[in-house]
Amino acid sequence: MTSTAKAPAGPSTVDPDDIARFSAIAAEWWDPAGKFRPLHRFNPIRLGFIRERVCMHFGRETKALHPFAGLRLLDIGCGGGLLSEPMRRLGATVLGADAGEKNIATASVHAGEQGLDIDYRCTTAEALAEAGERFDVILNMEVIEHVADRDAFLKACAAMLKPGGLMIVATLNRTMKAFGLAVLGAEYVLGWLPRGTHEWSKFVTPDEMRQGLVAAGLEVREVSGVSYNPISDIWKLSGDTGVNYMAVAVKPAG
């Protein structure tokens, strides 16, 4: 299912240049050897992380066939649906939102081919929050480093969390190590991503992430590093937040 919502009046957190870059390669989202290969390789570790943290928070059995049943989940900045589809398979009712129409078109077609009923919408976090949408879980994965106003974006997302709800954020740290690996290495040397995919100045340090989440009214429960082994071509959780990391935050129930 696909619908289109208009953004609210006033400033938007959407960066039109970033939207244009991703829209230009939208058709390649589901090609594991294409321009989104890094996300396909990254997917197993972040899917495992999401499953474990959501199940732990809501008291679900991780080995159950549909452990997310009864949970409403927002995949903000869903792209082609690489996370939305497995979340639906785990039993969640999924709304996948992206500001790029071509991304939503790609995601909708692929979900239809898989027989998955996912509510895909070309819209923004602000528009969804203004419309009163509420979710048990919000996935904010590899999005925040592409928005125009980080704090406003986090506040819009936090406003959509139900009391006791869980938000998981994944992003890149603003370090020279991240610049060398995620920008120079991935975009200019190895050619894993189109040049210009990332803007290093928009990367977010863990401290900035904590401050933004707290300012949005959330409690930060965990910040975990994610490291890549180029020899095994495998990602793993680690104590090193120097490049990639994921944060888990909860909206107080009271």
Rank of each mutant, 00 (worst) to 15 (best):
L47W: 03
L116N: 04
R121D: 01
E126L: 08
P86K: 09
A64W: 05
G115H: 06
L82S: 00
G112E: 06
L74N: 07
G77F: 00
I118E: 02
E61Q: 08
E85W: 04
A97Q: 01
H57C: 07
R60P: 04
E130V: 05
G70W: 07
A127G: 14
F58V: 05
V54S: 02
A107C: 01
V54C: 02
R88S: 15
R72P: 14
V109S: 08
S84G: 06
H110A: 09
L71Q: 08
A105W: 00
I118T: 02
R41H: 09
Y120P: 00
R88K: 14
L47D: 10
A111P: 12
K63Y: 12
A92L: 10
R51I: 11
L65Y: 10
Q114S: 10
F68N: 12
F68P: 08
R53M: 02
R89N: 11
D75S: 04
S108H: 08
M87D: 00
A111L: 09
C55T: 06
F42V: 07
G59D: 14
E113W: 12
A97W: 00
H40V: 05
A69P: 07
G79A: 05
V54T: 12
N43M: 10
C55L: 02
L90F: 14
K63T: 15
R53Q: 13
E52L: 12
L73E: 06
A125M: 11
N43E: 14
E113K: 14
